[in-house]
């Protein structure tokens, strides 16, 4: 296998090097890639869409159809992880761990007689993971107070994507990471309480639906698919501002989808589809 690998690598590498010789020089402003299609995006996008961030304008308007499928790819990955890993049946209760809230002592509770579950009063005891029982007060509290700010920043990144680097994908990942941080610093159960499995999964589908639905709305209003000018009939500001608003709408869809899917994939991967404990 090693020799085969080297041969293939040498073959492919030589083709790539052969081509690179004829590439236009690196960072050349006069290269064909910079002269044919892209100048229009830079020069006209502000007039045509009222969005100063050209990347956002191209992403969510000129090539919005690509972006819709990009969101679909994420959604498909989420569904794929769920389909393959999720174990729908509940496991029979095995030995579980509880921590006494006041003293911080950890108890291991075996099965009761005849497989009956023993209940500890949850006001005094909290369930903890069997693989990771230590209680990290500082980490828990610091993360707990950071998360709202992280989420706020995520929302800012989505909303301000028209004017600064950012947008639905970046903001969605930040929002998703906030929930994942909660899960890492506390445990999966806490994160599940904040965002249940169904919520994450539905967010993921809903985001794609917001995007595709915005397009379909334009179609229903008599324009081409995803032609946001149609939204001028519903929103204030004329056809050019309608493009800007339409972009915000789909960016929100992207953000919702990405957040939902990131959390969904993480939960499936971290708990091997059992959703009881994990990172």
């Amino acid at each position: 296998m090693k020799i085969l690998g080297l041969v293939i690598v040498a073959l492919v590498g030589s083709v790539l090097i052969y081509a690179t010789v004829d590439f236009p020089p690196f960072a050349d402003p006069e290269s064909p890639a910079s002269l044919h299609v892209s100048p229009r995006y830079i020069e006209k996008s502000l007039d045509e869409t009222a969005v100063p961030n050209v990347v956002t304008a191209v992403l969510a308007d000129y090539r919005s159809f690509d972006t819709m499928f990009e969101t679909t790819v994420i959604f498909a990955a989420g569904v794929a992880c769920f389909l393959l890993l999720r174990i729908p049946r509940r496991r029979p209760p095995g030995p579980r761990h509880f921590r006494h809230r006041l003293t911080g002592l950890t108890f291991r509770v075996k099965d009761g007689e005849n497989g009956k579950e023993i209940f500890l009063p949850l006001r005094e005891f909290e369930p903890v993971d069997s693989v990771w029982t230590p209680h990290d007060f500082i980490i828990e509290k610091v993360c707990r107070y950071m998360i709202p700010f992280i989420q706020l920043f995520g929302l800012y990144v989505i909303a301000h994507g028209h004017h600064s680097p950012g947008g639905g994908f970046q903001g969605g990942v930040i929002l998703g990471a906030a929930i994942i941080l909660l899960s890492v610093s506390h445990n999966l159960r806490t994160a599940l309480k904040r965002m249940r499995e169904k919520t994450g999964a539905l967010c993921s589908a809903l985001g794609v639906f917001i995007f595709a639905g915005t397009g379909a709305l334009c179609l229903a209003l008599g324009y081409n698919y995803l032609d946001y000018r149609a939204l001028a009939a519903l929103l204030p500001g004329g056809p050019i501002m309608a493009r800007s608003h339409g972009m915000l709408l789909v960016e929100i869809g992207v953000g919702v989808a990405v957040m939902g899917t990131m959390v969904w994939i993480f939960k499936n991967l971290a708990s091997l589809g059992r959703y009881d404990e994990g990172l």
């Binding site: 050349d28 402003p29 995006y41 830079i42 100063p52 961030n53 050209v54 990347v55």
Partner: peptide, 8 residues
């Protein structure tokens, strides 16, 4: 070369 990020 000599160009900045594409935010007008």
């Amino acid at each position: 070369r000599g160009a900045t990020v594409p935010i007008i």
